[in-house]
Design a protein around this nucleic acid. Structure first.
Length: 880
RNA sequence: GGGUCGUUAGCUCAGUUGGUUAGAGCGCGUCGUUGACAUCGACGAGGUCAGAGGUUCGAGUCCUCUACGACCCACCA
């Protein structure tokens, strides 16, 4: 057997592309790498926008999903991670329009066909950039199954879904009040509108009523006065009761409108009277419907005022606001203005102020779909992690409103509805040739496209071939976990569940795992304007992919936002280096002999061996428990702590004794233990840090599968050993205390000192056998046993459990200082004894606490009592 | 108006079946070129776990309320 020396450092830049190509070219990312009868484990990727630039949100979901996929693959499942991209209607269209503008043209000028041609051309050229960036993160997707929401087969799925809803009378089309984006010139859905709290003005003015009276009214948007079709007051409001039923006149344009009463009006707010603009306000729209009021739209598609605004036609909505208020002031109709905080509806994309407008659009009736989606989570078929999001999910679905799915865009799935000159609408699988009612061949297709989220909602099954009954759909649907950020719970997750339940009569996945948002080191949202964006590509280039992944995976807790900074990623890089150095040390010390399994030596193991193997198996069990409950971050932290603080700092240092010693058998055992520990940890860490672990794995001796396919560790109870753990705790405690004494007395670090020990732990540990630990870890030249002789004078003493170690430091010991030091320690021990005694004296503690807890306290008290005796004895022997 | 999350060391955060002396990184102080690692090691200082009640033998952890901060949903012009 030859052992290949590892390089001094991990060259991640070189290794990442090499290993990724190796994995992919061997088909390791494909579910077919598992036996044909293996249980599948499937994740459908949250498809990034084709226009996307890799950001930490992508890095987050890739890290988590790749972790789950690699973990399940190692557990022998047929792991399938379906990759894909989203056509992202608005975002992409904006991008192409910008490009056309730079060319001095526009989409209107080149026409729909040419525009789509240009967009596809752009997509073919640049649409894979984001895909390549996902690969760089180590994503082990099955790239042969890459999908795009506008693919032929996915378009078939979209059309099938649309037709099904139409046939089930769950689609309707008609003029409704919708959210209109004047800049993009399209309708947007409710969830695409964000409300931002902003400082505005509340305008108070007089609404003239027949007979010379007036009603004071307040509004935040004076321009909408021109579209008023009623003034409303509360039915029980004595101030205005006598005016109900009379005619009011819209200021400036003198249009007569009724004064109505409705209990919706809040008498306490503003003037207690409300102007009603049904065509530009959602509440007013409802009231308008209730009272059959006219709906007067006063704006054009670009939100400038139209002919209904009379003299103000042509003005921009905000210009009009100023002008109207000025004119009303001149006419003596204004009362006052006051500052007012209001919720301004802004477009999620672009941030412009969205305008409620009456418009002809397509809608999905959501209630029947929502019912099934609610039931699936209520009865536990789908679980949301963390479960607090279930409440948010229910709240949204229980109050769901119909979904406006048409968009006045060109890039997307064209609505498969065809209009006959007589108004008949045909919706069917194949494009109709002639109208079924009038026979006309003069059919026109609806010019609009569907909301991007309509196709995303079908993603878990459309990517597997639905509506065709493909083998993939049969084998891999339903998928298993849907992992994404909580910010798209409504946009995407809820809609996937609704559409999955509706169209496949099955859950689309059994678990939803929601991660938090990534923020900057101060918890602020990252944004280009704030210049606090951490670029994952730059971080990967600087510290390696594994460092970024490990940071994201361990930096927070499920569902909570996490702050990230370059320093954290740098620290992860340091951990990667530590892992590399540990491995390099082990591999360079394995020698030429075949390495056995420590289980073969189970009766011959030393205390440190038994300890580290017990801790190792404890770790494996703990990691499993954490993985089972989706607590990957804590699992990753525990692996790091084990490797760094226990294995590297203690076991490896101790192991040098056997490795550099003459006892070949002891050396062989130590090698077996070292190899076992690193082997297991590489497996545990692989889903977190795939590259460095796979690279180290290649240097491990023997013939073995690639790590990506190696078996996930299972805790081996044979090695769990409480006595070994307590023995090593004792030895480590003594070492730390001796180091302390050395530092306190300024003993030269290079000076080798003597030590004399006494005492016998109840576990049977023979301190004398482990003198080498003290030699290596705190520079004790020789450790003798006291064996009943008198304690040495002029020495410092450290006590731990049943063991006292004297350090004869003639000439360096300050007896007064030593007495102070030991007295302080004695006080601490006494404090603990008092506390423990108190607990044990408490009858209800002894009778009610779990027996093992009581037993532990008893043992502790016994240990402490012996330690106290030892310290007291030493203090008594300290004669000045 | 309804809801969620957070408040633990100077800073950023862990701490999920309640159970020894509450942890880490960074920062700070002292020290270290021993054959894996200075991308490191040794030792240390630093916390009434936001506050008040409650449940419990026992609370950072469970319950209630309060304060402060962040976010989500919602039709107050």
């Amino acid at each position: 057997m030859t052992v290949q020396e590892m390089p001094k450092n991990f060259d991640f830049g070189e290794a990442e592309s090499r290993l990724y190509t190796w994995w992919e070219s061997h088909g390791y990312f494909k579910p077919e790498v598992a036996p044909a009868d293996a249980e599948p484990f499937v994740i459908a990727i949250p498809p990034p926008n084709v226009t996307g630039e890799l950001h930490l949100g992508h890095a987050m979901f890739v890290s988590l999903e790749d972790l789950m996929i690699r973990y399940e693959r190692m557990r022998g499942k047929a792991a399938l991670w379906i990759p894909g991209t989203d056509h992202a209607g608005i975002a992409t269209q904006l991008q192409i329009e910008r490009m056309l503008r730079n060319e001095g043209t526009s989409r209107e000028e080149i026409g729909r066909e040419e525009f789509l041609f240009r967009t596809w051309e752009w997509k073919e050229k640049y649409g894979n950039a984001i895909v390549n960036q996902l690969r760089r993160l180590g994503a082990s997707c099955d790239w042969d199954r890459l999908r795009f929401t506008l693919d032929q087969s996915l378009s078939v799925a979209v059309r099938e879904a649309f037709i099904t809803l139409w046939d089930q009378k769950l689609l309707y089309r008609g003029p409704r009040l919708i959210n209109w984006s004047p800049g993009l010139q399209t309708a947007v859905s409710d969830v695409e509108v964000e409300r931002s709290e902003e400082q505005g003005t509340l305008y108070y003015f007089k609404y003239p009523v027949e007979g010379g009276e007036f009603i004071p009214v307040s509004t935040t948007r004076p321009e909408t006065i021109l579209g008023d079709t009623a003034v409303a007051v509360h039915p029980d409001d004595d101030r205005f009761k006598h005016l109900v039923g009379k005619t009011a006149y819209v200021p400036l344009i003198e249009r007569p409108i009724p004064v109505i009463s409705d209990s919706y009006v809040d008498r306490e707010f503003g003037t207690g009277a409300l102007k009603i603009t049904p065509a530009h306000d959602f509440n007013d729209y409802e009231i308008g419907l209730r009272y059959n009021l006219p709906m007067i739209s006063i704006m054009n598609k670009d939100a400038s005022l139209n002919a209904n605004a009379g003299p103000y036609a042509g003005l921009d909505r905000f210009e009009a606001r100023k002008k109207i208020w000025a004119d009303m002031t001149a006419a003596g109709l204004t009362i006052k203005t006051e500052p007012h905080t209001l919720q301004v509806p802004r477009s999620q994309r672009g941030g412009e102020i969205v305008e409620p407008m009456i418009s002809e659009q397509w809608f999905v009736k959501m209630e029947p779909l929502a019912e099934k989606a609610i039931a699936a989570v209520k009865d536990g078929r789908i679980k949301i992690v963390p479960d607090r999001f279930e409440k948010v999910y229910f709240n949204w679905l229980e109050n769901i409103r119909d979904w406006c799915i048409s968009r006045q865009l060109w890039w997307g799935h064209r609505i498969p509805a065809f209009y006959c000159p007589n108004g008949h609408i045909t919706v069917q699988r194949e494009n109709p040739v002639r109208c079924a009612t009038c026979g006309s061949r003069d059919l026109t297709q609806d010019p609009d496209v569907l909301d991007t989220w309509f196709s995303s909602g079908l993603w878990p099954f459309s990517t597997l071939g639905w509506p065709a009954q493909t083998p993939d759909l049969d084998r891999f649907y339903p998928t298993d976990v849907l992992e994404t950020g909580y910010d798209i719970l409504f946009f995407w997750v809820a809609r996937m569940i609704m559409m999955g339940m509706w169209f496949t009569e099955n859950i689309p996945f059994h678990t939803v795992y929601l991660h938090g948002l990534v923020r900057d080191k101060n918890g602020e949202k990252m944004s280009k304007t704030k210049n606090n964006v951490v670029d994952p590509l730059i971080m990967m280039g600087q510290f390696g992919t594994d460092s970024l992944r490990y940071t994201l995976l361990t930096g927070g807790t499920p569902g909570n936002d996490q702050n990230i900074s370059e320093e954290r990623i740098e620290y992860s890089r340091n951990f990667g280096n530590k892992l590399w150095q540990i491995s390099r040390f082990i591999i360079s010390n394995l020698g030429e002999e075949t390495i056995a399994d420590p289980a073969e030596f189970i009766t011959e193991l030393s205390a440190p061996d038994r300890w580290i193997l017990s801790r190792l198996q404890g770790l494996v069990g703990s990691v499993q428990r954490l993985f089972d409950t989706y607590q990957y971050g804590e699992a990753g932290r525990q692996i790091k702590e084990f490797l760094w603080e226990e294995f590297a700092d203690w076991y490896i240092e101790i192991s040098k004794n056997a490795l550099y010693g003459d006892d070949a058998h002891a050396k062989q055992i130590t090698q077996a233990v070292l190899l076992k520990v690193i082997d297991t940890n590489l497996r545990l860490l692989h889903p977190f840090m795939p590259y460095i672990t796979e690279e180290i794995w290649r240097f491990l001796p023997g013939e073995h599968k690639p790590l990506i396919l190696a078996a996930w560790p299972v805790s081996d109870a044979r090695f769990i050993n409480a006595d070994a753990e307590s023995d090593m705790d004792l030895l480590r405690d003594l070492v730390v205390k001796i180091r302390n004494v050395r530092l306190e007395y300024s003993v030269d670090p290079g000076r080798r000192i003597q030590a004399i020990a006494t005492g016998q732990p109840t576990t049977g540990l023979q301190i004398g056998q482990y003198a080498y630990i003290f030699s290596r870890l705190c520079n004790v030249e020789q450790l003798d046993m006291l064996n009943g002789k008198a304690a040495p004078e002029q020495s410092a003493a450290v006590v731990s459990g049943d063991v006292t170690v004297y350090l004869p430091l003639a000439g360096m010991i300050d007896l007064a200082a030593e007495r102070t030091r030991l007295t302080e320690e004695l006080e601490m021990i006494k404090g603990q004894i008092a506390k423990t005694q108190g607990m044990l004296a408490n009858e209800s503690f002894v009778s009610r606490a779990k027996p093992e807890v009581v037993e532990r306290e008893r043992t502790k008290l016994a240990d402490l009592t012996r330690t106290r005796a030892a310290v007291e004895e030493r203090l008594g022997g300290l004669v000045g």
